[in-house]
C-alpha cells in the first residue's frame, strides 16, 4: 500500500459518519498505486496553514502560493499557472525558469497535447464551472490513473462540499473553495462522504482498502489522524 500522494494528504476526522469503526474489519491493502510518476515537489514549500486561505488541502485551509497568469501578463517569477493553450504555445520559452509551473485545464479540454509535457508540470488546475458539471471528474481520473500524474490536482470554480469527496476519489487533492457555506462546513469538520465505495478507482487521494469479497468494493481506511499536523 504505497499511495504516493497519501503521504501529504491528511484525512480529516470524519465525525459526521461513525459507522466506519467496526471491530474486526482489519484493513486490507488496496491495489498499489506506485505506477504514479514521481514529480518535482508537488507542493510549493512556502504553502502554510491559514484559516482565511483559499485552498482546502491536507485537511485544513492553506495559503495559495501560486499565481494565475492573466492573459496579457508576462509569466511571473514564482510558481505560475498558465492556461493550457498558453502553456503549449510558450512551453519552449519557459525552459529557463526554476519556479514550478502549473496548467489550467478547462472542463472538457483534451489532455492529449499536455500529456507529453506532463513531467514539467507540478500542478494541474481543473475547472468546475458549475457544481453540476462533472467533466473535470473524468479529467482528474485520467491524469492520475492513465497518465500517472503525481503532482497536485486542484479543483477550482463552483467547488461545493457535497462534490468534494467524489472529486477526491477522482484524484483531486486540493480545493480552491470560495463558497462561504462550504468553507464554514469544512472548517467545522464536515466531510459528507459515504465511506463505502463500489468503484475500484486508481485515482483516489485517500487511503482505501478492499472491503468484503467483492473485487470492486472499497472502504475508507482508518484516518491517520496524526497526519493532520
Amino acid at each position: 500500500m504505497t499511495p504516493p500522494v497519501a503521504a501529504t494528504t491528511a484525512v480529516q476526522a470524519f465525525d459526521d459518519i461513525e459507522i466506519l469503526d467496526r471491530p474486526g474489519a482489519a484493513p486490507q491493502p488496496a491495489r498499489s498505486r506506485d505506477h504514479l510518476r514521481r514529480v518535482p515537489d508537488p507542493e510549493p514549500a512556502t504553502s502554510r496553514p491559514d484559516p482565511e486561505g483559499p485552498l482546502w488541502r491536507n485537511g485544513r485551509f492553506e495559503t495559495d502560493e501560486w499565481t494565475m497568469t492573466a492573459e496579457d501578463e508576462a509569466v511571473g517569477e514564482g510558481p505560475a499557472i498558465l492556461p493550457l493553450e498558453r502553456f503549449l504555445a510558450e512551453r519552449d520559452g519557459l525552459g529557463h525558469r526554476n519556479a514550478p509551473l502549473g496548467v489550467l485545464v478547462a472542463a472538457g479540454e483534451s489532455l492529449s497535447e499536455l500529456i507529453p509535457h506532463l513531467t514539467r508540470v507540478t500542478l494541474v488546475v481543473l475547472s468546475f464551472p458549475k457544481f453540476s458539471d462533472g467533466r473535470s471528474m473524468s479529467t482528474a481520473r485520467l491524469l492520475r490513473e492513465r497518465h500517472g500524474f503525481g503532482g497536485e490536482i486542484r479543483a477550482t470554480g463552483d467547488v461545493l462540499i457535497d462534490q468534494m469527496p467524489l472529486m477526491r476519489r477522482c484524484g483531486v487533492d486540493s480545493f480552491d473553495v470560495q463558497n462561504p457555506v462550504t468553507r464554514k462546513q469544512l472548517a467545522a469538520g464536515k466531510w459528507p462522504d459515504v465511506p463505502f465505495y463500489l468503484q475500484p478507482v486508481g485515482s483516489s487521494q485517500q487511503d482505501e482498502v478492499a472491503a468484503g469479497k467483492r473485487p470492486w468494493a472499497r472502504r475508507r481506511a482508518e484516518a491517520p489522524r496524526q497526519a493532520a499536523e
Binding site: 457544481f131 453540476s132 458539471d133 462533472g134 471528474m137 473524468s138 481520473r141 462534490q163 469527496p165 467524489l166 472529486m167 476519489r169 477522482c170 459515504v194 465505495y197 463500489l198 468503484q199 478507482v201 467483492r214 470492486w216
Partner: peptide, 13 residues
C-alpha cells in the same frame, strides 16, 4: 447497479 452507485466520476453527467 452496484458499480453505478455514487460513482465518483459519473454522478454529474
Amino acid at each position: 447497479r452496484q458499480w453505478s452507485s455514487i460513482h465518483p466520476e459519473f454522478s454529474f453527467l
